[in-house]
Design a binder for these strands. Structure first.
Lengths: 164, 164
DNA sequence: ATAGTGGGTTCCCTAAAGCAACTCTCTGTT
DNA sequence: AACAGAGAGTTGCTTTAGGGAACCCACTAT
């Protein structure tokens, strides 16, 4: 497994990618979310090698993004499900899906859309500010040192930033 | 470059990952966002090989996520910047950063935090519904066939779903 | 004249992904 | 009873992608 350089683990994005950014991992999570529960099913649907799938499932279980329960004994067979941690990860992927729809969809429009059961509408994910609720645009957002920042290590940018 | 299987390009997530999901790409985008503009700077900061960086920058330019402008001639030197497409991608990464903070941060807390200049607060990205504004939780969201769905191809799930 | 810098490219080597075949334990069919 | 097939992996081999280091080229500074 490719781990990002240690110095960069300072950033939450690097840590997220480290556990959920490997090849195939987001697609596996997405497929489990929308209904694939068995090894064979995921493998057939995504067309990745069984070896890599076995590997990724191990990681996802170890990270607590997926969990599995036996659905039969002799031989024991498991079904995979998202944990709460996995469901929140999927939520972040909704934002990525929205970006893909907006910027890379083919002329025909997005092949799949999301339906939000709470409001009943066809929707997409928006990334908004946890405080004011407005869209959290990159050009209106700056980085600042957090409680876990280790001065003298990590990124050389963060050290010159105002404390929160 | 690893491209996902064609059949899966039906999904926007696969398409997003195809252009922005390669190793290092999100971290490069993040670094350009928060101030790294020159090749050397990005390379030093992330510690990736120059070859891979040159490769990723080429892809990001070709995809229109980054743009570059010469800041000197003889020899010509460029500085990289995010395009609007790139800034919106960064926005999606904010959601991933929030997930990393919530689920994988060390005991000391997140090393970096975001400051939203519009409201002046320390914030994080939330993924919300474009229609009702509520958090777009995975367990309250279903997938449905979109305008670009090609029946008979792509995922076998989407074909059994209600039309929007 | 020499060293250094910025932005790459080239070469070699290792690590990870793809592919195919194999295992093992059941279940269903003839 | 014999055989085929499914489900969930594991093992081995080949190809590809990534890391490291060296090299190049056009300047600039000392």
């Amino acid at each position: 497994m490719q781990r990002t350089s240690l110095g960069d683990m300072a950033c939450s994005l690097a840590r997220s990618l480290d556990v959920a950014g490997e090849w195939w991992t987001p697609l596996i999570v997405r497929n489990v979310w929308f209904g694939a529960r068995r090894f064979e099913e995921i493998q057939r649907d995504l067309g990745l090698s069984r070896k890599v799938l076995a590997d990724r499932l191990r990681t996802l279980l170890a990270e607590g993004i997926l969990e599995r329960r036996p659905y039969q004994e002799h031989p024991v067979r498991h079904k995979y499900r998202l944990t709460p941690k996995g469901r929140e990860l999927m939520q972040a992927f909704f934002a990525l899906m929205a970006w893909g729809d907006r910027w890379t969809a083919e002329v025909a429009g997005p092949p799949m859309v999301l339906c939000h059961e709470r409001c009943g509408e066809i929707v997409h994910g928006e990334v908004t500010c946890s405080s004011c609720g407005e869209p959290l645009r990159a050009e209106e957002t700056r980085i600042a040192r957090g409680p876990g920042a280790r001065v003298g290590r990590g990124s050389r940018y963060v050290e010159h930033l105002p404390a929160p």
